[in-house]
Structure formats: structure tokens, C-alpha cells
Simulated assay, not measured.
Amino acid sequence: MADKYATNLKARVDERVAEMESDDNSHYLIYRVLGIATEEGRLIDVYQNKGRFLYKYAGSFLEEAAKLCFLETFPESGSVRIPNTIGQRPKTFEIDCLVEERDAIEIKWRDATTDGDHITKEHTRMQNVRNAGYKPIRIMFYYPNREQAKRIQKTLETLYAGVDGEYHYGDDAWNYIKNYTGVDLLATLETIAKERTQA
């Protein structure tokens, strides 16, 4: 799975960087006005595009890897959609991994949002999960660095506790996966990362 994601990421990045060769770069004028040399501006644009793909693929990879840990131990677990019985939008909510028709696990690699609407949506999602008869559980591997994003996560943690759910992040998230499934996902990823960076 790591090979597939790495190959796909490289292909998308290479394709986008090639496309950028023919981009209109007239906006570099404004970069120069702000003291950014043309070559530095070009590199910033390239890395900004690479970063978008990297974040997307990193998140998808880690979320899929975590789901596989649950599927390995609980073959009947998997993603499930439940109707939104409280609000109009969205029409349904996805449970990333429903284990033994009891634990509704949401998996996030990181969540750096600072949007207050995010709290409302998550609260509605949690209420729907609880109303469907499941226990809402959130796993987030990497906690945000910015204060406003941290405040959002603290609020979400309180909301999960308020519906008798669970919220695991950072080291606790890795340990939760290991204790729940018996799969040491962190050690596996560290081994793969070491092999790739030494190659």
C-alpha cells in the first residue's frame, strides 16, 4: 500500500510541476514588489503545489492504513453511512470504521481547522452516531500546532466526552490502535519510513 501511494503521489506531483512550466507567471511581479525574487517565487509556487498533493496523500494513506488495522482484527468492520436525522446538510455521515456494530470510529491523520462551523458539523455528526446506537470514537494522530486550531480540538474533545464517546490523539491514538487491534501501526510505519529514507 505504501508503494502504491508513493508512486501515485510522485506521478501527480511530476505531472503538476510539468504543467507549471507553461503557467502564466505574470503574478511574480507582485512577489518582486513584496521583496521575493523571481526564482524564490517560482520555488514557493512549486512547493505549495507539492504540499497540497503531499497533505492529501499523507492523510488518505494514514487513514486507510488505520482502517486496515481494524479490518485485520475485525473483518466485519468497515465504512458505513448513516442518515442525518437532525439537520438538512449533509444528508448522510460516514463512519470510517464500525466495529462490532458498536464502536463508530472516525479516523483523522490531523485536523488543523480553525473554522467554528467545524464544531457544529462534528457535534451534529456525533449526535447522529449516538442516535444510531453507536459509540462515537475519534482517533487523530497529529494534533495541530496553532492555538486557535488547538481550541477547536479541545472543544471537540469535550463534545465527545459529553456523548459518552472517546477522543484519542497523538501518542494515545497510536496506542489505541495497537491495544484495540493488536497491530503496532506506528512501528510498522517507522520501519517503512526508515527503509525508504535509507534507499
Rank of each mutant, 00 (worst) to 15 (best):
T181A: 06
E147H: 11
L68R: 02
D3W: 13
V33N: 11
I152G: 09
S26E: 05
P144S: 04
R81I: 03
E190S: 05
T124V: 11
N49H: 05
G41D: 05
K178G: 05
D164H: 05
A66Q: 02
A132C: 07
Y176L: 07
I86W: 10
N8K: 00
N175I: 09
Q153A: 13
T113A: 14
P144D: 06
D115R: 15
R138I: 13
V46C: 00
E100K: 15
G182P: 08
Y142F: 04
Q198H: 03
R196I: 12
Y47M: 07
C97N: 10
G59D: 05
K50H: 08
L189G: 00
E94H: 13
T7W: 12
Y142Q: 02
I152C: 10
A161C: 11
M126A: 07
R102G: 15
M20E: 06
V80E: 02
I139Q: 06
K194C: 00
D23E: 13
D184N: 01
E195I: 14
I192E: 01
G170H: 08
R110Y: 10
H27N: 04
A66V: 06
I119N: 11
A11R: 00
R81L: 12
V80W: 08
Y167Q: 02
G133F: 13
E190A: 05
N84I: 05
F74L: 03
K194W: 10
L54K: 07
P75K: 06
N8M: 10
E101H: 15
A193P: 03
W109H: 12
D3A: 14
A6E: 09
I82F: 07
N179L: 04
Y143L: 06
E106L: 01
M126E: 09
G165Q: 05
E94A: 15
A58S: 09
A2E: 10
L189D: 01
A199L: 07
T197F: 15
L54W: 00
L43N: 09
A104R: 02
R138F: 11
R89I: 15
E64M: 05
R151S: 12
L29R: 11
R52S: 08
